[in-house]
């Protein structure tokens, strides 16, 4: 078994314009994903919107700078994540397809294998 991070990206403006009903359907999608994935989901969270982000970066002299905003300025920001456990990439791809983000063109998923130490 291996661990994978499913990173959920989306366009915050589009998320904000969703109606209550749309959110309900969206959340039902996440519940369906969680039910299907069962114990394979090790962790999963929605993140506060991108404007709440704070970034830290060190310069060449080692001085740390604190800035307001996300590390990378992109149209689509990180909105949440799942940490899952699966036998291989195909299993994760199949699970991830259940996520409601794939019902919209303004959001999407990135899957990253997690490094296992030891």
């Amino acid at each position: 078994m291996a661990k994978y991070m499913i990173l959920i990206y989306g366009d915050a403006e589009q998320w904000d314009s969703m109606t209550g009903e749309q959110w309900e359907a969206h959340n039902a999608g996440h519940a369906a994903f969680a039910a299907k994935a069962g114990t394979r989901v090790l962790d999963g969270r929605q993140l506060e919107p991108v404007p709440t982000a704070t970034s830290l970066r060190a310069d060449a002299r080692g001085q740390v700078h604190t800035t307001d905003g996300p590390f990378l300025e992109t149209k689509e920001g990180l909105g949440g994540y799942y940490l899952v456990e699966a036998a291989d990439l195909d299993e994760v791809l199949e699970l991830a397809r259940l996520l409601p983000e794939l019902n919209h063109t303004h959001s999407g998923l990135e899957i990253r294998p997690v490094v296992e130490h030891g």
């Binding site: 291996a2 036998a87 291989d88 990439l89 195909d90 899957i111 294998p113």
Partner: peptide, 10 residues
Amino acid sequence: AAARIPYRVP
């Protein structure tokens, strides 16, 4: 290897 793309006929 790292992403564990399986060695398998789907």
